[in-house]
Design a protein around this nucleic acid. Sequence first.
RNA 1: GCGCCUUUAACUCAGCUGGAUAGAGUAACUGCCUUCUAAGCAGUAAGCCAUUGGUUCGAGUCCAAUAAGGCGCACCA
Length: 588
Amino acid sequence: MADLLKLASLQAREIILDSLGRLISLEKAPAEPLPDFIIEIPADKSHGDFAANAAMVSAKAFKLPPRKIAELICEEAILDGTYFEKIEIAGPGFINFFLSKKWFSSIADTVLTEADNYGRTNTGDGKKILVEFVSANPTGPMHIGNARGGAIGDGLAEILDWAGYTVEREFYINDAGNQIEKFGKSLELRYMQLCSKDGLMIIAKCDNQTEAICTAIYNDTEKFPMPEDVYLGMDIIAHAHDYFTEKGNSLSKVSEEERRAALVAFALPKNISVLEKDLGKYRISYNTWFRESILHNDGSVEKVVEMLTERGYTYEQEGAIWFKSSELGDEKDRVLVRANGIPTYFVPDIAYHYNKLVTRGFDKAIDVFGADHHGYIPRMKAALTALGVDAERLDIVIMQMVNLVKDGEKYKLSKRSGKAITLSTLLDEIPIDAARFFFNLREPNSHFDFDLDLAVEKSSQNPVFYVQYAHARICSLIAALRVEGFTLDSYCTEELDVLDKPQEIELLRHLASLPSEIDSAAKTYDPSKVTKYAVELATLFHKFYDACSVKNAETAELKKARLVLCSAVLQTLRNSLSILKIDKPEKM
RNA sequence: GCGCCUUUAACUCAGCUGGAUAGAGUAACUGCCUUCUAAGCAGUAAGCCAUUGGUUCGAGUCCAAUAAGGCGCACCA
């Protein structure tokens, strides 16, 4: 798993350090430690492949102008046996490094040798990471925010895997606690409405058609009133009606509590399997669907309160048990157990994170959350610290809210209204490729307007088509050459020396940067870097395609070299699309 | 009121730990298919990087204040 770009960058650094060391021994440089410098990639390619600011940052220590220092460094620099063919002094004192042909030639070789693994790195060193994402409320369908969370979480998990971590994906099912109570209450109310005289009339009138019944009941708020604190979505009515259709009004005679339990037991598994199905369609599959109820049943929840108490982090006030989170960086203390004896959601959540990091021993846990939960971070970290777990092992990726835009108008997202656009509706309307690509087009932390009209559009405006088009173009190009009997049986890096057009060099340079880009995406938890990489690669390829003919190359050597280049581009494009789980069409 | 996030071209956004003349796409305009897929390419035009101050060789990038917008601030999750 070679990262040629990184190797070259490190080599540039070594050359400078080596040169500085020699200057010190010649007493041309101050003996005290010099400030650290950076090796960067200049925006303007005429400034070389790497630039070092060593001379500028050392100006004070040398008591010389930066350009003079740069001259000294360059005089002592030794390039023999390195990837570089020349260095130059430029601007205010930059030292610019120019890579040799040999380096560029070896890129395609590396790509084709590593093939489907090109881009993978060892940075993660096999450390175990658990990525938890979506974890949508199982009381109802998923919304657009979950769609973004799904694309980001799954992309991130894949990127971490490529960066050498051992990754597991997990969905946390909140199948206990208050919202399940609320779910039961909502189902129960709707069920009883269906069993009522008015309800039976509607059922008869609608010829037992679920959708019509749901709409009728949902809209008639006078005959079928609902309190404030329940779920109003039509899916609730549909569950109640399904139960009614299957088992009649038998539940109307039992106790309210029994009725709720029966309805929850009926509806919850259905909801969970819908979540699984919808996410599967979205190309997400989890290693684990972790149930909150487990933590209640195995005593983990009580144990958390006990452990925090043992460590002196709790106190009682007004009948409730509080956690002294303000001592550990949170803005205020939090209730763990309410005055009525029921723990808040916070306790099972602590137990859950303890389970991830201690019981199951993951080195790191990453949660992908919507921005509306950002206030949760300090208290969760405080809880881990209180339990003696290094809070650094929990990282939370916050993604900002999504606005759906259609015809220039914004949709508001709401789970309660029943009118929110669900994930499955979205996937019916737009291609899955487009959804996954769009949600990873920007970094998680940016506010995002999802333009439905654009995502549906099958045109050049749609970046996912642009990238796929590049892939299809290369495939057909290679196929056309194969018909001529021109294939990639054997190649050697020397053959690539004939590539010297700027479009070819740019392309090679970009190919080399995939491993670094993956490391960077893994480090910053930002899958959009890979998306941007793919778009840039497609752009460079289209430019190359237009400027350089493969089929009608001037010489056979050049033709072969370009075929090698195209094959390497194809491989790299495929790898980036694989990470994003976007289709790779061979024809369009 | 307090906290988190955002503010770069008409629109949507890049800009890597501060670096050399701030970049793409869309929309507008002009060119390029008898030759590997024109879902493409080349070009033109478009900017007080929200405002003000600070840090230094050097600021779109770091710090502070201000403004506008988004999201939070429960014994809800």
